[in-house]
């Protein structure tokens, strides 16, 4: 069951940014969302997170239309990590992660042991426990993203949606972040630009172009020479890596 898109349409003015998208995310797996700039990845992720309402079609959570959920109820199970979320407030790492408990607390309820457990577990999982009292402004780009992931995990989500979380990170932090996300036991949908990273870490891939899904399936099935030429306009050789047994793309010079 998990999260499912059913013939989604979303427009800016008369332009159909998302034009009839349907798919279903496999529970507990990492689904990669690929596509050139402007193909509708970010818009689709926003629809899936319930941040925007589709003009047609539905997003289903466990068979129920997401528009029938209250905002707070969505946030209790779907966590969303934006592309560049930053703040000028002088927050500590722990304050940011605690924000993740917001949907689980009512106006008057105090901070519970359950909240504490979720926050500590999220910090532990993301390797940020040692930096819990560090100031947000003092963190590196990679640490900021890890903090966002920790905040999202503190929401105790069953679905995690990430919009190009590895942008602007150095390769070490890109790899460690993807390793972390692919090891999570929750349903995750991630927009990515690096095709090799997508091939290595995602269980399934969806490729978008101009608001459509043009291919979907396992990395082996999806990443073909023809698709790369037609969608991304690049020539490449694809072989199965002898090191990790996933497809590896050699772009032509």
């Amino acid at each position: 069951m998990s999260i499912k898109a059913d013939n989604l349409v979303w427009k800016i003015g008369t332009k159909r940014v998302i034009d009839g998208v349907s798919f279903e995310a496999e529970p507990g797996k990492l689904l990669g969302l690929l596509g050139p700039n402007g193909s509708g990845k970010t818009s689709l992720l926003r629809l899936l997170a319930g941040l925007k309402r589709p003009h047609a079609g539905r997003v289903m959570l466990d068979g129920q239309d997401i528009s029938s959920f209250r905002r707070r109820a969505i946030a209790q199970r779907v966590a969303f990590i934006e592309q560049h979320a930053t703040t000028n407030a002088n927050l500590k790492v722990i304050d940011v992660v605690k924000l993740g408990r917001f949907p689980h607390r009512t106006m008057l309820s105090g901070w519970t042991r359950e909240d504490d457990r979720a926050v500590n577990e999220a910090l532990e999982r993301t390797g940020m426990s040692g930096k819990r009292d560090d100031a947000w402004q003092s963190l590196s780009g990679g640490e900021k993203q890890r903090t966002h992931v920790a905040r999202a995990l503190a929401q105790s989500p069953s679905e995690l949606i990430l919009d190009e979380p590895t942008n602007h990170l150095d390769v070490q932090h890109q790899i460690s972040l993807l390793r972390l996300i692919s090891s999570l036991p929750i349903t995750s949908i991630i927009a990515l630009h690096d095709l090799n990273h997508a091939a290595m870490y995602c269980d399934r891939l969806i490729v978008m172009q101009a608001g459509w899904i043009v291919a979907s399936g396992t990395p082996q099935d999806v990443l073909t020479q023809r698709l790369l030429r037609e969608v991304f306009s690049v020539d490449a050789h694809i072989e199965t890596s002898p090191h990790h047994a996933r497809p590896h793309i050699h772009f032509q010079r």
């Binding site: 905002r71 707070r72 969303f80 930053t86 940011v96 917001f102 949907p103």
Partner: peptide
């Protein structure tokens, strides 16, 4: 608490259930 949730902007607040 709602104001705390606005630290990372409107969209982040919305995704936290505000």
């Amino acid at each position: 608490r709602v104001l705390d949730a606005f630290a990372f902007g409107d969209e982040a607040a919305a995704s936290l259930g505000v």
